[in-house]
Simulated assay, not measured.
Amino acid sequence: MPTYAAILYSSRDADWTAPEEGPVMAEYGAFSQVAGPAVTGGAALFPTSTATTVRVQGGKGGDVLTTDGPFAEAKEVLSGFFLLDAPDLDAAIALAAQIPAAWDGAVELRPVIPMAG
């Protein structure tokens, strides 16, 4: 069965560890209950203010440059991901439509490439 990465983009940059985010987290908990064994992994991410972007200037072995924050400013922010086992893309879409991020942001689905070992 294929695995899909459901990459979550939210319309706001929330701190999911803050008490006021409890109701939203409850919605994600409800999704996990509905999706059941189709959810094989995932994580919420801290706000973009905690991000560090890493680039290597000149390719492998070049100078390592770091920048505070995300790679680019965007209307929606990367807020987390789920790994979904679904028999096909249509089933993955049906699951993604139930993820709260899809209601006010977006959920990008990508097939995961199986890696040996």
Rank of each mutant, 00 (worst) to 15 (best):
P111F: 04
A14R: 15
D15A: 09
R12A: 13
G105N: 08
A102G: 05
A6E: 04
A38I: 04
F71Y: 15
Q57I: 10
A35M: 06
A18D: 12
S10K: 00
G105T: 05
L65M: 14
Q57S: 13
Q33F: 06
L78E: 05
W103Y: 09
T52M: 12
L83H: 08
R12E: 14
L95V: 01
M1P: 11
W103I: 01
G80I: 02
L89Q: 11
A116C: 00
E27S: 11
D13Q: 00
G41C: 01
D90H: 11
G62C: 06
D15H: 09
M25R: 13
A30Y: 00
E108W: 08
P70T: 04
I113C: 02
D88H: 13
P114N: 00
L89K: 09
S79E: 07
A38M: 10
P23D: 01
A86N: 05
P70A: 15
A18K: 11
L89D: 05
L8E: 15
T17F: 10
T53G: 01
G42W: 03
A18R: 10
T48Y: 00
A5S: 14
A96F: 08
M1N: 06
G69P: 01
D90M: 02
P37W: 00
P47L: 01
P37I: 01
V56W: 02
T52K: 14
T52F: 10
Y28K: 06
D85Q: 14
M25E: 04
I93N: 07
L89M: 10
I99T: 09
G22L: 12
G117E: 10
